[in-house]
Design a protein around this nucleic acid. Structure first.
Length: 487
RNA sequence: CGGGACGUGGCCUAGCGGCUAAGGCGCCUGCUUUGGGAGCAGGAGAUCGGGAGUUCGAAUCUCCCCGUCCCGACCA
């Protein structure tokens, strides 16, 4: 493997042959992102940023409907603040970027570039919260954060990334748990209904949870290479931070109490997940619900200039009709390139549905369509175009979800025996569902021997009655957990 | 931070001690062409990652930096 991006004329490394190479090629070729001069950082190009804006618009609406308000806290966090919560500090220390010099001088107290904003926010919350009437406090910020990772990939793990971080403060732990679960639901709904990706949602083991949290809930994606991508997290912080940052309020009994907090986030990593799960050898596959444009109309050329004008006019009419019906449509009149070239470019960047308009369409009053996801071709009568196009887009959305669910299920194997566990994992990467006693020692043994870590205990299994044994120590298992190698 | 592969116009490569660094893609101009990545003609574009050294002579050999990708360890 070299660093060369050796794109053939027709394109990409095959996804099945080398998913890493395929992924890197695709990110660059589809113009979602570019490498930057700063190691580990990437440039999000307009097409990539448009996807992120789409993510923002969907989540932001849900947050606001729930009374979560947007705000902005500073990038720089005084180190003394950051180190207040011990677990938090310990968890993030290895990946902190610290500003030690500014204004031409060495700073007396260094600043941390936020890897997450709990500390700076909660210091302030202590000033904002005095009464039970101040609660709940629900805020969110869309921002960048910096985590100095050793190894980076575009979108999936970059030194600097964009995300939203929601932070809430509640009178009771029950309320905080409810909020934590609500955020998790948002994320699950987002991935399943908009990104059309079937996910695992559940709780993290103590070892894998957020530094400073009581419980971490996570959305995990199953990548077609069998690896796991942590795609969003929601933390019940209990009153850990409240105690450290001295956040208190007087309840309606005039009693001074610490409130309970949550934090939850989803990052630009989600876009990497989208690319990895759905993309194919021809390029990106973007679900119709988030694609913009959703439909490309390719106008074909003709030998006679008169015909070209007729085709253009016809295509423009179709374009207008579909836009009036609320579809996001782009009209491609670029006759400088050959048809094959134009098609391949649109497939690479992914417009979910392609319509082709030439003389035949005008003559037959039927429009040729091609689905991007499975390349199904057909014709739609012009007078039914809008309704049929709507159905096709819905079907694409459904079908790619089903496909992702199949990948997820096919790559999840339930085992009872550790020898079998090891044998399976030796051959190929998969998710393994197995009984675990929830003791760290057994978790670590699995990690050392197989590289697999606990991903989540699935939500629907939390209340399941324990049965079976821990796959390592053969003590009674508390639950069946999912294990996988993280991306 | 360990192991590996590398660094030559915007991109992919050739050149591996010796003449003015070669080709393809892309880009620009013109003509032509369009039902799955067209063709012809012309054109612009390179201090060969940086530095030091060996040599009559370095893209080519040596050393040191810097950077990139891949595989690990760590993480959203």
């Amino acid at each position: 493997m070299t660093q060369k991006k050796s794109f053939g004329k027709r394109g990409l490394t095959k996804k099945s042959e080398n998913i890493s190479q395929w992924y890197n090629d695709l990110i660059l070729r589809s113009k979602l992102a570019d490498y930057s001069e700063v190691k580990g950082s990437m440039i999000i190009r307009p097409d990539g940023y448009a996807l992120w804006e789409k993510v923002q618009s969907i989540l932001d609406q849900w947050f606001k409907e729930d009374g979560v308000k947007n705000c902005y806290f500073p990038l720089l966090i005084p180190y003394y603040l950051f180190k207040k919560e011990k677990d938090h500090l310990k968890g993030f220390s290895p990946e902190l970027a610290v500003v030690t010099h500014a204004g031409g001088e060495k700073l007396a107290e260094p600043y941390v570039l936020r890897p997450t904003s709990e500390t700076i926010m909660y210091k302030t919350f202590a000033n904002w919260i005095h009464s039970h009437r101040d609660l709940p406090l629900k805020i969110n910020q869309w921002c960048n954060v910096v985590r100095w990772e050793k190894r980076t990939y575009p979108f999936l793990r970059t030194t600097e990334f964009l995300w939203q971080e929601g932070h809430t403060v509640h009178q009771t732990e029950e309320e905080a748990v409810e909020m934590t679960l609500k955020a998790l639901d948002w994320y699950q709904k987002f991935y399943e209904e908009y990104f059309a990706i079937s996910v695992y949602a559940g709780i993290k083991s103590d070892q894998e949870k957020f530094a400073g949290a009581k419980t971490t809930y996570s959305i995990e994606l199953v990548i077609p290479n069998g690896k796991a991508l942590q795609a969003a997290t929601s933390h019940n912080l209990s009153d850990n931070f409240a105690k450290v940052f001295n956040i208190t309020f007087l309840d309606n009994q005039e009693k001074k109490r610490h409130p309970f907090q949550t934090s939850w986030g989803l990052s630009t990593r989600s876009i990497g997940g989208l690319v990895l799960v759905h993309g194919d050898d021809s390029g990106l596959i973007i679900p119709p619900k988030i694609a913009d444009p959703q439909i490309v109309i390719i106008a074909l050329s003709d030998k006679q200039e008169k015909q070209v004008k007729i085709i253009q006019a016809y295509a423009a009419k179709i374009h207008q009709n579909l836009e009036e019906q609320g579809f996001k449509v782009i009209l491609d009149l670029d006759f400088r390139h050959s048809l094959g070239y134009r098609i391949n470019e649109w497939e690479l960047k992914c417009v979910p549905l392609r319509l082709e308009i030439g003389q035949n369409e005008i003559k037959d009053k039927k429009i040729k369509f091609v689905r991007r996801d499975d390349f199904t071709k057909g014709f739609i009568a012009e007078n039914k175009l809008a309704s049929e196009v709507g159905k096709i887009l819905d079907n694409i959305q459904k079908d790619i979800f089903i496909k992702s669910e199949k990948i997820k299920n096919d790559l999840t194997i339930e085992v009872e025996d550790y020898q079998e566990f090891k044998k399976i994992v030796k051959d190929r990467k998969v998710f393994i569902r197995a009984g675990w006693c929830e003791n760290e020692k057994c978790e670590n043994k699995i990690k050392e021997e197989t590289k697999l870590t606990t991903r989540v205990l699935e939500m629907q299994r939390i209340k399941e009655k324990p049965k079976g044994k821990c796959i390592i120590c053969h003590q009674p298992a508390k639950h069946k957990w999912l294990f996988a190698q993280s991306y």
